[in-house]
């Protein structure tokens, strides 16, 4: 489903974010990307939804080499990938309902279909009562739920989450992790970048540890503790 082949990323300032990373993610898999800040977790995710292109190597998503995707095709790639951010990135002038609906409007979904699917997505994340609220009126956890609802409303085969619990308290984090797991159970491929030990250890999924831009460990059903030696 997602394939990294020998991928390296060098930022314009010369910083090397990824070094010859190869990684294969199966359809329907749930994978944690862990490691200290600055080891390339976000970079890896950005390559999938073409926020970035690698300096070297190939990234194949749904059988398509996204590194060679023309700019005009990028929106269509993103419609098949839901993305959840640490800072939520909700449109401040739109209600929860409108934020979620926006993702469907831009792909030309009929209004009746939009109403049905938005209601469903908001229900899945448990935000039914807040549908008419603006992001500024919501707590961090609620905003993250809205962000997740927007990411899944389109039923994308892939869901990416970049530090989804980074701004949340531990209790809220467990709820969000559970929500991501529920989405995975419905058949979505989920990739979560996180250094939140609690949620990684709670779910016992495949864990890929990054260290200084390389894959240091790749374990099924693994856990994560920050004092592990950072092997290269």
């Amino acid at each position: 489903m997602i394939e990294f082949q020998n991928v390296s990323v060098v930022y314009p300032n010369g910083a090397q974010a990824l070094r010859e990373v190869s990684l294969h993610i199966e359809k329907g898999e749930f994978l944690f990307l862990v490691g200290p800040t600055g080891t390339g977790k976000s970079t890896l995710l950005k390559l999938v939804y073409r926020e970035l292109t690698p300096s070297q190597g190939q990234v194949v998503v749904n059988g398509e080499d996204v590194t060679r995707l023309p700019a005009s095709r990028v929106p269509y790639l993103r419609r098949r990938i839901g993305v959840v951010f640490q800072d939520f990135r909700l449109l401040p002038q739109k209600t929860v309902y409108e934020n979620v609906a926006y993702a469907l409007h831009v792909i030309g979904t009929p209004y009746r279909e939009i109403r049905r699917r938005v209601a469903l997505a908001i229900d899945v994340v448990g935000l039914g009562r807040k549908a008419a609220s603006y992001p500024g009126q919501l707590s961090g956890g609620e905003q993250q739920r809205a962000c997740i609802a927007r990411a899944i409303v389109n039923n994308p085969p892939i869901l990416l989450a970049d530090e989804p619990t980074g701004n949340l308290d531990p209790e809220m984090s467990q709820d969000i992790a559970q929500l991501l797991n529920d989405i995975h159970i419905r058949g979505t491929t989920v990739v979560v970048a996180s250094h939140d030990i609690a949620i990684v250890n709670a779910l016992r999924k495949r864990v890929v540890t990054l260290a200084r831009g390389r894959i240091a460990r790749d374990e099924a059903g693994g856990g994560y503790s920050p004092d592990e030696p950072e092997a290269c």
Partner: peptide, 18 residues
């Protein structure tokens, strides 16, 4: 004032024209 919105719209798959 709304430049962030533009980035978000693009992230959810809106075409440039949209």
């Amino acid at each position: 004032a709304r430049r962030k919105e533009i980035g978000i719209m693009q992230l959810v798959g809106a075409t440039n024209a949209c």
